[in-house]
Simulated assay, not measured.
Amino acid sequence: MRTITKDILEVPIKRITGEQSVELTDSVSVEEPLEIRISLGGDLAPSSAVEKAGCEVSQSKSIAVTMRTPGADQELAVGFLYTEGIISSVTQIAEIKKSGCNVVDVVLNSEMEIDPALLDRHSFIASSCGVCGKKCIEAVSARRTYTPSAPFPSIATEVVLSLPDKLREAQKAFGCTGGIHASGLFDMSGNLVMLREDVGRHNALDKLIGASANSGLLPLEKHIILVSGRASFELVQKAAHAGCTALAAVGAPSSLAVELAQASGMTLMGFVRGAGFNIYTGADAS
């Protein structure tokens, strides 16, 4: 195997076509674990919530290990912390740094109070929702930093239809491997603002939201997010946390994703491909 870039690897393959086989090489997307750790900065004693969670000032707490494509790791960490409700602003981060190849340490401001229930992976769902979809939606609404001032925006049909081609054209890694997800941020006129790729669709969106937070773009009330796969509950949840009111997906949404989008004031579109798309919640496309 040969490394082409930090996110693309060249591997030997045997290509079968009918009864013929040929020895070739193929480019694949790199997938490696990333551990996200948090700690409190300064000399103040930890809050009671942190003490209960076993997170001390002098040591970091591992809160997630995710399989991701290397690159934009700090943005991924910021986006993850934001969409999991652990932080509500990048100003709550005192320092963020890479520790080795696959670890990101995030030092939070010492005065922060941290809910210990949020310090376990997927705890946003597990701790708040149990097995009830209605409680999941209520939990998202309770923890959202932004409430849309103009919910369910209407977006021109030609703008929506133009998004997949613009996303695909900007996907450098997908062009090489054909095996990576993307999340794109567009303005309401359909201009691409930024794009992030990752083998994990949730990671791609976390990277995008982290980059948006670092750039001071939150809330994303005047933007459209396009995801390259389906629209799951978790993707709608992450978009809602970022203040997004327009989410489009190349694939289909789930039932709970539709319910959450409706409750969040979000225009949700699916099967955005070719000459058409479906509107599941929000104003009709103009």
Results as ranks from 00 to 15, higher is better:
residue 215 S to Q: 14
residue 121 R to E: 02
residue 269 M to Q: 05
residue 157 T to H: 07
residue 33 P to T: 09
residue 47 S to G: 14
residue 185 L to E: 07
residue 6 K to H: 13
residue 54 G to W: 03
residue 248 A to T: 10
residue 74 Q to R: 12
residue 168 R to T: 09
residue 42 G to S: 08
residue 120 D to S: 09
residue 116 P to M: 14
residue 263 A to M: 12
residue 23 E to W: 05
residue 23 E to I: 00
residue 15 R to L: 06
residue 84 E to K: 01
residue 80 F to P: 00
residue 237 Q to I: 05
residue 186 F to V: 08
residue 72 A to V: 03
residue 140 V to N: 03
residue 164 P to T: 02
residue 231 A to K: 04
residue 249 A to R: 01
residue 85 G to W: 01
residue 113 E to Q: 15
residue 10 E to L: 04
residue 267 T to S: 13
residue 277 F to T: 00
residue 56 E to V: 13
residue 174 F to Y: 07
residue 170 A to V: 01
residue 230 R to W: 01
residue 255 S to F: 12
residue 50 V to R: 00
residue 266 M to H: 04
residue 193 V to T: 09
residue 121 R to L: 07
residue 33 P to C: 08
residue 216 G to C: 14
residue 99 S to K: 07
residue 174 F to M: 02
residue 117 A to H: 07
residue 170 A to C: 04
residue 105 D to Q: 13
residue 62 S to I: 09
residue 261 A to V: 09
residue 248 A to W: 02
residue 89 S to Y: 07
residue 79 G to C: 03
residue 202 H to N: 06
residue 155 I to T: 13
residue 55 C to F: 11
residue 21 S to A: 10
residue 48 S to R: 04
residue 226 L to R: 05
residue 182 A to D: 03
residue 17 T to A: 02
residue 181 H to F: 04
residue 282 G to M: 10
residue 99 S to I: 11
residue 14 K to T: 09
residue 190 G to Q: 04
residue 174 F to S: 02
residue 10 E to F: 01
residue 133 G to H: 10
residue 208 L to N: 13
residue 94 A to Y: 10
residue 269 M to S: 06
residue 279 I to G: 10
residue 22 V to R: 04
residue 212 S to Q: 11
residue 11 V to G: 05
residue 251 G to D: 01
residue 225 I to C: 15
residue 182 A to F: 01
residue 70 P to N: 12
residue 257 A to Y: 02
residue 158 E to F: 08
residue 277 F to L: 08
residue 156 A to P: 08
residue 128 S to N: 15
residue 146 Y to C: 14
residue 196 R to F: 11
residue 167 L to G: 00
residue 133 G to D: 15
residue 235 L to S: 02
residue 164 P to R: 01
residue 248 A to S: 12
residue 176 C to Q: 08
residue 78 V to P: 00
residue 172 K to W: 08
residue 101 C to G: 14
residue 276 G to R: 05
residue 252 A to I: 03
residue 222 K to W: 15
residue 76 L to G: 01
residue 203 N to C: 15
residue 180 I to C: 03
residue 271 F to V: 09
residue 96 I to L: 13
residue 285 A to Y: 01
residue 174 F to C: 02
residue 178 G to M: 03
residue 246 A to L: 08
residue 97 K to S: 14
residue 31 E to P: 04
residue 116 P to H: 14
residue 276 G to I: 11
residue 50 V to F: 06
residue 286 S to M: 15
residue 12 P to R: 14
residue 166 K to G: 06
residue 277 F to G: 01
residue 126 A to C: 03
residue 111 E to Q: 11
residue 12 P to M: 13
residue 68 R to M: 07
residue 255 S to H: 12
residue 43 D to W: 01
residue 15 R to G: 02
residue 194 M to V: 13
residue 195 L to W: 03
residue 177 T to F: 00
residue 109 N to M: 11
residue 47 S to K: 08
residue 18 G to Q: 12
residue 230 R to N: 05
residue 53 A to Y: 06
residue 232 S to A: 14
residue 223 H to M: 15
residue 35 E to M: 05
residue 64 A to I: 08
residue 158 E to R: 06
residue 27 S to I: 12
residue 236 V to D: 01
residue 31 E to M: 08
residue 222 K to V: 15
residue 285 A to Q: 02
residue 60 S to N: 12
residue 109 N to G: 10
residue 72 A to L: 07
residue 22 V to P: 00
residue 221 E to A: 13
